[in-house]
């Protein structure tokens, strides 16, 4: 059982919804990013998604693209991203960390070495946008063997015929992308999302978390209300881009978390 499995079991027992927050490692710089990530559990975040910067984030909108660029210009690397997770683990041993990004930096590091290093740093799961089920032998299967969850994205184009394939080697939770589009774009309504979540839950016992386009505590509440939780990324990253202080960013995250937890 990973920290992710334990966290969702606990939330389920308490009848609470999960609040998942995404920030880009190294944005706006290493020190501030480390401070924000280490402060997320205290702001009520149930699962932390740590973005792994990549030069060519082809499924991300401008907000996440620019965050990645800021991080890379500041010298962020895969090793430094793992170091931030290790730092978090000095003060927090229960909040799950999911590393989210693209395959090439991991492939370049070497898959076997990456899995050892990620596990050692305290990473619990992976979301790799450009690894669909068709490429499971690359990282998904080795990651599960190493005790890391491999979390898959399901989308509006994942029809009933394809859904079993998407769910097959997924663990931890399912991330439902509520729109066809890039991160930070417009959001889907709770009414539109509810039947999609039901469709996925009919095929799996895994928690279903919904993301893309959630920007306010109310939206987090609405979406979490029809799923097992909500993810917010771009809206938090925008605050960081604006130069908000760490305290202000964490206060905003706490508002979003409170919204999701009201559901």
């Amino acid at each position: 059982m990973t920290r992710i499995d334990a966290k969702f079991a606990a939330l389920r027992a308490e009848g609470r919804k999960a609040f998942v927050a995404y920030v880009m490692a190294g944005d706006p710089d290493y020190a501030v990013s480390e401070e924000i990530i280490c402060g997320l559990p205290g702001a009520g975040v149930d699962v932390i998604e740590v973005g792994l910067p990549f030069t060519d984030p082809m499924a991300d909108g401008p907000t996440i693209q620019l965050a990645g660029q800021r991080a890379l210009e500041g010298g962020q690397t895969l090793k430094k991203t793992l170091a931030i997770v290790a730092k978090l683990r000095e003060t927090d041993t229960t909040t799950p960390v999911v590393m989210m990004g693209y395959y090439n930096p991991i492939y370049s590091h070497g898959v076997d070495k990456f899995l050892v290093d990620a596990k050692e740093a305290g990473v619990d799961g992976l979301i790799v946008v450009d690894l669909p089920p068709e490429e499971d032998s690359e990282l998904c299967i080795p990651a599960q063997a190493a005790g890391l969850n491999f979390i898959r994205l399901a989308t509006p184009t994942t029809d009933d015929k394809r859904l079993p394939k998407v769910l097959q080697n997924t663990s931890g939770f399912v991330y439902y992308v509520s729109i066809t589009g890039i991160t930070g774009a417009g959001s889907a309504s709770a009414e539109a999302v509810a039947p999609e979540v039901a469709r996925i839950k009919a095929k799996t016992d895994l928690p279903v978390i919904v993301g893309f386009g959630i920007k306010t505590p109310d939206a987090a509440e609405e979406i979490a209300g029809v799923a097992d939780g909500a993810v917010v990324g771009s809206a938090i990253v925008e605050r960081i881009a604006k130069g908000d202080s760490v305290a202000d960013v964490l206060a905003y995250v706490a508002d979003l978390a409170a919204g999701a937890h009201r559901a």
Binding site: D130, L131, P132, E135, V177
Partner: peptide, 18 residues
């Protein structure tokens, strides 16, 4: 699998896969 030896493949997001 769309491979030429070890090269090629289908490394795209789920939205595009179908």
């Amino acid at each position: 699998q769309g491979r030429f030896g070890d090269f090629g493949g289908r490394f795209v997001s789920e939205t595009l896969m179908p």
